[in-house]
Amino acid sequence: MSNFFENVDWAEIAQACLDTLTMLGGSLALTVLLGLPLGVVLFLTGAGQAWENRWSHGAMAFGVNLLRSVPFIILLIVMIPLTVLLMGTSLGVAGAIPPLVVGAAPFFARLVETALREVDRNTVEAVQAMGATTRDLVFRALLPEALPGIIAATTVTAIALISFTAMAGAVGAGGLGDLAIRFGYQRFQTDVMLVTVVLLLVLVQFLQAAGDRLVRHFTRK
């Protein structure tokens, strides 16, 4: 057994795990921070909603679709100048976060918009009929009612981010993906590959399970 893992440097693995978790945590937090308001605005400017506006909705939807249609690996490269401007470097964990956020926030915003649209129309109307402002409607009705959907969207986004971080590893971001590519792929160290894949799998499983639990906890239906 110890033979099989001869190439595995556990300290390096630990560092890679930490890097992956940092990238995931940082980018997920920023994705939610930017994507949630964007999703709400996308929803509110949609047809029949409080801020209905075809032009701004159309423009935002176009921007979101544009960013979602660019393959992440391309986004990583195209964003290098902007990343350097924002973070001072395009390498390491810090360099990975801007492209991760730009890649994931539009995706998350769309999921949030969908979750908000699924809030019962009757409920929205009832709250409007109470004399609610749009702000009341968003904070006291729409977001609480859509919470399970938003948590599910966060889970999906987090898992998508994990695969993005692995890709970011290819351009020098560090983390488990980086390790898998450098040792597992380029030097044929299958044992390193295996360990990183198992760790990534464990992380994905854990996130999915935690997300599902939270969704169940907040669902009162």
Binding site: D120, N122, T123, E125, A126, A129, E145, K221
Partner: peptide, 13 residues
Amino acid sequence: VGMIFQNFGLLSS
């Protein structure tokens, strides 16, 4: 002006 609905319109949360 209060209003009630066929499908109640209650907040499930």
